[in-house]
Each structure stands twice: as structure tokens, then as C-alpha cells.
């Protein structure tokens, strides 16, 4: 297990490095002189040249990449253009809001998706199964920003049950959680459908397995068979899928943050693109990538904890 973790960590480092190379190339290929963008139209050539030297842009490209690479691993992603603050600080400031949003989305999808999948698998073909099946496909098909807008209009504007915008007062956890309900629903609702379908399919498969027949032949209670003998196996593909799904949730989070005017990395990137604040865009993308890779690493380790067959192979 330890060996495996180290191996996976090494792989993660390589992936992050490749992403850095890609990001660097992308920034390099963007037309326009970063020094000119930073200084604005009224700067003189001498000022631009001075900044180019200061930013290291006069160096050969491979030295530029090496500097970017070394600095990035040390947590230094440069300074953003508008306020000249370190990109790392700006991104990390916003990160907790996005993390909370995604965690909320995961809680929705797990808390609703897994029980629904389980429930429909026990009585396949029944009326409940069909209704939930149709609803699942429905919420999968609807883009998260549509859900966000409708959730906002129905629950915040018309019914006034929940607040419409913002992340709540800092320091007031309850208020923050209340502000999180609708945006996290928008991020997680599609995943409720995915998980319901996935858990249903894998439950049906596991319930056909011969060890379930053995458990029944030993007269074990049906509850024990469903939840302990079948669900613990049926849940394994879900964990992997959720790890990958974090990527999609991160992109849904951009829309949810814009619609609900919440702070967060998504909103930050959106604003940075509008103001052509490239260091901030690349920094935020890099942080998001690291987050995505870290969560997938955790998902794989969780599968290892849940599945002894995987664990012993590690």
C-alpha cells in the first residue's frame, strides 16, 4: 500500500510537470508581449524592455521554462498583472470557496445518487425504477448552468427560501452553508443522476454474482446481503468515477460561481480572462489541475482501502 502510494505520488508529480509544460507553451504562444500587456499602451519602449528583463523574457525559451518550472514547484507562480500580488496568494484565497462548493456537490450526489441507485436495483423494472431512471437521465442531460439559473429563480427569487447571491458572512458557518445549498445543488444534481444509474447497474450485476447466491443459501438477512455483501462491491466503480467527475464539477463550479456571484477559483478565472490577466489564468489552472490530480489520487487510494483485492495487488 505504501509502495503504491509512493508510486502514485511520483506519477502525479510527472503529470503536474507535463501540465506545467503545456501551460507554459500556451502562454508563450499567446500573441502579444506580456510586458506590453502589463504596462499598458502608454509605456515607453525602454520601460517595456526593462520589464522584459525583469520578467526574464530576454532569456532563451528553455531557461524561461526552467525558471517557470522551478518557481512553480516552489509555489511561486509569478505576480498577477492588475494588483501585482503573488498569483499563489490570490488563488489560494479563493480556493476554499470552490472546495466547499465541490464538496457540497459531492455530498448531494453521494447522499442522493447512491441510495437511489440501490433502491432502483432492488426492484428493477418497477414504477419507482422507471421514474427515477427518467429523472436521472433528465438531470444528466441538463447543463449545470441551466440548473443553477432555475434553482436561483425558483428557490431564491420566487419562493425566497434561500439566498440568491454571495457566499455568506465570513465566520458564520451556518450562513455559509445556507448560501452553499443552491450552488452545490447545481454542481451536484447531474451527478446524482450519474451515480443513480451507475450504482443501479453495478448493483444489478453484483446481485447476480454467485457469492450473493451463497449468502442467500446461508440464510443471511436480505438487508445484510444488500448493504454489506452487494453495495460494498457495487460502490467501487462509483469512487473511481467520482474522482474523474471532480474535473467536470470544477467546470460546473465556474458557472455556479458566476450565476450565484460567489467568490471562488472559477469566478477568478472568468474575471481574469475578461481582463487578460494571463499569469492569474495560468496559475488558477495549475492549482485546479493539482487539485484534480490530488483528488484522483485519493479516490484510487480509497478504492484500495475498500477493495482488498486491489489492496493486495498494490
Amino acid at each position: 500500500m505504501l509502495n503504491y502510494s509512493v508510486k502514485r505520488l511520483g506519477l502525479a508529480v510527472i503529470i503536474v510537470s507535463v501540465v506545467m509544460l503545456l501551460l507554459f507553451t500556451m502562454i508563450y504562444l499567446i500573441p502579444g508581449d506580456p510586458a506590453a500587456v502589463a504596462l499598458g499602451p502608454r509605456a515607453t519602449d525602454a520601460m517595456r524592455e526593462a520589464l522584459r528583463v525583469k520578467m526574464g523574457l530576454d532569456q532563451p525559451i528553455w531557461i524561461q521554462f526552467w525558471n517557470f518550472f522551478i518557481n512553480a514547484w516552489q509555489g511561486d507562480l509569478g505576480n498577477e498583472v492588475l494588483s501585482d500580488r503573488p498569483v499563489t496568494d490570490v488563488v489560494l484565497e479563493q480556493l476554499p470557496f470552490t472546495l466547499a462548493l465541490i464538496a457540497g456537490g459531492m455530498i448531494w450526489s453521494i447522499a442522493l445518487g447512491i441510495p437511489l441507485g440501490c433502491w432502483t436495483a432492488i426492484q428493477p423494472g418497477g414504477i419507482v425504477d422507471r421514474i427515477i431512471g427518467i429523472l436521472s437521465v433528465g438531470v444528466i442531460a441538463v447543463p449545470s448552468f441551466v440548473i443553477a439559473i432555475y434553482a436561483l429563480l425558483i428557490f431564491a427569487v420566487s419562493l425566497r427560501w434561500l439566498p440568491a447571491i454571495g457566499a455568506g458572512d465570513s465566520g458564520d458557518i451556518i450562513d455559509q452553508i445556507i448560501h452553499l445549498i443552491l450552488p452545490s445543488l447545481a454542481v451536484g444534481l447531474g451527478w446524482v443522476g450519474y451515480l443513480a444509474r451507475l450504482v443501479r447497474a453495478s448493483m444489478l450485476e453484483v446481485l447476480e454474482a454467485s457469492h450473493i447466491r451463497t449468502a442467500r443459501a446461508f440464510g443471511l438477512p436480505e438487508r445484510l446481503i444488500t448493504y454489506r455483501y452487494a453495495l460494498t462491491i457495487a460502490i467501487l466503480p462509483t469512487v473511481t468515477l467520482l474522482g474523474v467527475g471532480i474535473g467536470q464539477m470544477l467546470s460546473s463550479a465556474v458557472f455556479a460561481e458566476i450565476v450565484f456571484a460567489r467568490p471562488g477559483v472559477g469566478k477568478l478565472v472568468y474575471d481574469a480572462i475578461l481582463t487578460r490577466n494571463y499569469p492569474l489564468v495560468s496559475g488558477a489552472v495549475l492549482v485546479t489541475t493539482v487539485l484534480f490530480i490530488a483528488i484522483n489520487l485519493i479516490a484510487d487510494l480509497v478504492v484500495g482501502v475498500l477493495d482488498p483485492r486491489v489492496r493486495s495487488r498494490l
Binding site: A209, S210, H211, R213, T214, A215, R216, A217, F218, G219, L220, P221, R228, Y229, T232, I233, L306, D307, P308, R309
Partner: peptide, 26 residues
């Protein structure tokens, strides 16, 4: 009532030893 008999009065060994035991429970 049948469940009360199974595993206690009537027990079964199945054909496939590879799949007959639950893989994720010790």
C-alpha cells in the same frame, strides 16, 4: 421461515469456489 432453515438445517456448497465467497469481506 425458509431463511431460518437455510444455513442452519440445510446448507449448500456451490460449484464455483472462486466466486462463492464474498471478495471484499474477510
Amino acid at each position: 421461515q425458509l431463511r431460518e432453515l437455510r444455513g442452519v438445517r440445510i446448507s449448500t456448497v456451490f460449484q464455483d469456489p472462486m466466486g462463492a465467497l464474498n471478495p471484499v469481506i474477510s
